[in-house]
Computed example of a mutant assay.
Amino acid sequence: MEERVKEHKLKIYPDSFTSKYNCNKLVYFEEYSKAEEAIVREKRLKKWKRDWKIKLIEDMNPSWVDISDNWNIDFNRLRDER
């Protein structure tokens, strides 16, 4: 998960939604053991109304703080896959 946060914050993919709209705060996340489960959940969330999404975030993170700020992320190093 930390690698995905780095990719977003460093705008590794300049044509992505997060890069285009400067979305650089992690305010909500869910963890899944299988990628397929996460994909299904993400597709469901995309269909939700904005108000529902905001409530989901605020139930977990009412101040909308960047959750990843407390993580010890090394931004000088990305996976060697690139």
Score class of each variant (00 low, 15 high):
P14F: 06
P14D: 06
P14K: 08
D15L: 14
D15Y: 09
D15C: 10
S16R: 08
F17R: 12
F17D: 10
F17A: 10
S19C: 03
Y21D: 08
Y21V: 00
N22W: 03
N22A: 13
C23F: 14
C23R: 11
N24M: 07
N24R: 10
N24K: 13
N24H: 12
K25I: 00
L26N: 00
V27M: 03
V27S: 06
Y28S: 01
Y28M: 04
F29S: 06
F29L: 03
F29G: 00
F29V: 01
E30C: 06
E30K: 12
E31Y: 08
E31Q: 10
S33H: 14
S33Q: 14
S33P: 07
A35V: 04
A35F: 11
A35R: 13
A35G: 07
E36S: 09
E36G: 06
E37G: 07
A38R: 03
A38Q: 06
A38S: 01
A38G: 11
I39S: 03
I39T: 04
I39V: 12
V40A: 10
R41K: 10
R41F: 09
R41L: 04
E42I: 00
E42T: 09
K43H: 10
K43R: 13
K43D: 07
K43I: 03
R44V: 13
R44P: 02
L45Y: 11
L45N: 02
K46A: 13
